[in-house]
Amino acid sequence: MLQWRDRSPQQWQEFVNQEVCVTAHDQQSFEGRVFTVDPVSASVVLVSFPETKLRPSVRVILGHAVTDVQILASGTPDSESRMKSLFLPDTAQVLGA
């Protein structure tokens, strides 16, 4: 498989809205739902809704540090729109969320 940084927009797009585990430098790993992968830096943006916290958290993993991304569970149209409304307030209004 290609290095994470060398993949195409199509390949990155396949991870959007999926629940994933990102493995990074030093064997650290991060779980969450993929909001996007920056096509310039290959950085992954994860959103998670931790049960112990009231507010969702966002984590950016810099592309140079990403060694692997594994899909844990598929997203749904509902998870996509819920996630989108966090970042794109305009969309939330259009959707009536």
Partner: peptide, 10 residues
């Protein structure tokens, strides 16, 4: 290059 990840709460 020094940063592996960064996080914040909404």
């Amino acid at each position: 290059q020094d940063v592996i990840s960064c996080s914040f709460e909404l």
